[in-house]
Design a protein around this nucleic acid. Structure first.
Length: 324
DNA sequence: AGTCGAGCCTGCTGGC
DNA sequence: TGCCAGCAGGCTCGAC
């Protein structure tokens, strides 16, 4: 299932328990960059090159109000491509507009595909069945080619927008986004410069989408552990000294590796979906520190114990022994 | 300008 | 057993 909900992923893990041992570790449960990328890839076959035959908008707003005449502006247009910036998905339309889709923290898509070659059917309910009341199914796209794409979002922190493609970069949802963490722009030198003078924690700085786009609470904790840097460290202290910052360089590598591994795990779940009765979105990704307070640090020969602290009102997990 | 907290929202969990 | 407070978090806005 293409989404980022806790319930579904756990449910599927349990559902599949007969084939593979149940995972004692936590599975990813909120849409950060890797989850969004997986969703994007899952939407492509159902939407790209397809036309919106019918668009059903079931409520006036999510996190923000829907754009004016939302369904009318989509109906009859064809999707040219689906891309991503940070946690934001963008479907290019042949009308010259771009459909923006953000999953917030509980958003996800279900695809009912009537095409015979892909008899997939997936929902993110505990029982893998459609929400009976359809209570949180807020948008329904009926696409040419037979797929019905349903946006579900219990907490409604997600949103959809429509922008003219030539005004896209000026959109308030895009204009402040920092570089893609997996792109060429995100280098040690960039990060060192961006962190210079910042009097906040490294954790808070990395969560700032203006600094780098796509990291959330989970992957920031993971990346900092990977880089052996304390989330409590002053951001500025990871910036350049004598024109070079070992710490910033280490952090860039860690961010890239952690995200790439998670995308890989998500990609596997997409691939598996084609061969099952509907388990897309299963992230069997394991975390080193996130939500693992009290357990032993997975780093070889570290021997530390993972600790949970609260920074800026959010939980942070790290190993005080190896993260400095 | 940079930093931080409130608030949005619902579902799950843990404590009584 | 049942109830309910507390927690979870991405993003924007407002306060300092």
């Amino acid at each position: 299932m293409v989404q980022g909900t806790i319930v579904s992923r756990r449910a599927i893990v349990q559902h599949d328990a007969g084939r593979s041992p149940p995972l004692p570790e936590k599975v990813a449960h909120m849409p950060e960059l890797p989850e969004v990328e997986t969703v994007r890839r899952g939407l492509e076959p159902a939407m790209v090159g397809r036309t919106f035959v019918r668009v059903e908008q079931r409520r006036a707003d999510l996190r923000f109000p829907f754009p004016q005449h939302f369904s009318d502006r989509l109906t009859g247009t064809t999707v040219t491509d689906i891309s991503r910036r940070g946690k934001l998905m963008m479907a290019g339309l042949d009308s010259g507009e771009v459909l923006l889709m953000h999953l917030g923290m509980s958003g996800g898509f279900a695809i009912l595909d009537n095409a015979p070659e892909t008899p997939g059917r997936f929902y993110h309910r505990r029982d893998n069945q459609p929400d009976q009341a359809g209570r949180h199914d807020h948008v329904v796209f009926e696409m040419s080619g037979g797929a019905t794409v349903i946006y579900n979002d219990p907490r409604r922190f997600g949103f959809m927008g429509l922008e003219r493609s030539d005004e896209l970069t000026a959109s308030r949802h895009l204009r402040n986004l920092g570089p893609e963490p997996l792109g060429a722009e995100f280098t040690g030198q960039y990060l060192a410069t961006a962190l210079a003078g910042r009097q906040t924690s490294l954790k808070a700085a990395l969560l700032d989408q203006r600094l780098v786009a796509g990291l959330g609470n989970i992957y920031v904790s993971e990346a900092l552990h990977h880089a052996r840097l304390s989330p409590r460290r002053l951001a500025a202290s990871a910036s350049a000294r004598n024109g070079r910052s070992i710490r910033a360089e280490r952090l860039v590598v860690a961010v890239r590796e952690v995200l790439a591994a998670a995308i890989e795990a998500g990609g596997s779940s997409l691939k598996d979906f084609a061969h099952t009765d509907g388990g897309l979105g299963l992230f069997q990704h394991r975390f080193a520190v996130y939500d693992r307070a009290g357990t032993q640090c997975p780093r070889t020969r570290c021997g530390g114990t993972i600790k949970k602290i609260v920074q800026n009102g959010r939980s942070t997990f790290y190993c005080p022994a190896c993260q400095r």
